[in-house]
Amino acid sequence: MNLRPALIALALAIVSAGVPADARTRNVTDPNAPRALPVEGPVSVRWEDPSKFTDIRYSRNRWEAVRGNWVEELAEHVRKSAEKRLPPGQRLDVDIVDIRRAGSYEPWHGPDLDDTRIIRDIYPPRMTVNFRHTDANGTVLAEGERKLSDTGFMIGASPVTNSDILRYEKSMIDSWLTREIGSPRSDRS
């Protein structure tokens, strides 16, 4: 009696039972994916449909560009970084309108690098945001659209010590928030 097929079926049943229903690869353009962070604290962050973002629309590998949770990760970074900078009572509302991540896919390198984002200084990170910064009384301190870009993103970069794939975008966001609100407060680091 050959038990191999029965053991394989049992193993597959055990593995599939332990996998959550939503274990498929995350896709930022999924219509069921969130379009805002949950409302909490003094910073709210929302975003447009990522399928309209430059990073996806003009990607040389759209399938890789939509993979992951990078939009929500950047939104979370905006929130955390802004919360460290806002004085008590102030509020910041941010709408992410467009994102172009650092790097690009270069399919001419061949199939081995099809899914690799190549980082070069000619592919700087860019982001467009609309924001509203208010004080404790609701008075608008600043608002409008900002087109963020960091054309010098590779200068002083230390890729060996920072393995975060969104490090260039996060650095650009931090620079904008420092210009817009100020440096992180020492009591909120």
Rank of each mutant, 00 (worst) to 15 (best):
L3T: 12
A11N: 04
A13K: 01
S16C: 03
P20A: 03
A21P: 08
A21E: 11
D22V: 13
A23L: 04
R24P: 00
R24F: 08
N27L: 08
A36M: 13
L37K: 04
V45S: 06
E48A: 14
P50C: 08
F53V: 02
F53H: 00
T54G: 07
T54R: 13
D55K: 00
I56A: 06
I56K: 01
N61S: 02
R62H: 10
A65M: 03
V66T: 11
R67G: 14
E73T: 12
H77Q: 00
H77F: 09
E83H: 05
E83Y: 06
Q90H: 15
R91I: 11
L92K: 09
D93A: 15
D93S: 12
V94Y: 04
V97M: 09
D98Y: 10
R101C: 00
G103L: 04
S104L: 00
W108N: 12
P111G: 09
D114H: 15
I118T: 10
I119Y: 05
I119W: 03
R120L: 14
R120K: 15
Y123F: 14
Y123P: 01
P124I: 03
P124F: 00
R126N: 14
T128C: 07
T128Q: 14
V129S: 01
R132W: 09
T134M: 13
E143M: 12
R146W: 04
K147L: 13
K147P: 09
S149A: 15
T151N: 09
T151R: 00
F153P: 01
F153T: 01
I155G: 07
G156R: 01
S158Y: 04
P159I: 00
P159Y: 00
S163G: 14
I165C: 11
L166E: 10
R167Q: 14
Y168M: 06
S171V: 02
S171M: 08
M172A: 03
D174E: 12
W176S: 02
R179H: 11
I181R: 02
S183M: 13
R185L: 14
S186I: 14
D187I: 01
R188K: 15
S189Q: 15
